[in-house]
């Protein structure tokens, strides 16, 4: 199965892309994060939240959608 991951703000700088698709087997948010931390070690020390279906989800949430977003701290206004 393919999972699209979108990166925003400083995270897009760290990964050097605004989105990518990775192959993954069914699991939770933290399973995907493990893969990403291997690929981008700096991500581990960076503060961010994960959104699925336009809502912030916790690390043990099961992945149901084919797309997630990694969001650094919000700084609107």
């Amino acid at each position: 199965m393919n999972l699209k991951i979108k990166y925003f703000g400083v995270l897009a700088e760290i990964t050097n892309c605004s989105e990518e698709t990775i192959a993954y087997t069914k699991g939770s948010v933290s399973d995907v994060l493990m893969l990403l931390f291997e690929k981008y070690p700096t991500l581990k020390e960076t503060d961010f939240q994960v959104a699925q279906d336009l809502e912030i989800v916790s690390k043990d949430t099961l992945l149901l959608e084919s797309e997630i977003a990694l969001l650094p701290p919000f700084s609107g206004g």
């Binding site: 925003f8 703000g9 400083v10 959104a51 977003a69 969001l71 650094p72 701290p73 919000f74 700084s75 609107g76 206004g77």
Partner: peptide, 19 residues
């Protein structure tokens, strides 16, 4: 609201805004 501000300096360096 997931909005992100990149603060740009005059010398073209930048940092990410924190509310």
């Amino acid at each position: 609201v997931p909005i992100f501000g990149k603060e740009l300096f005059e010398d073209e360096s930048h940092q990410w805004k924190v509310n």
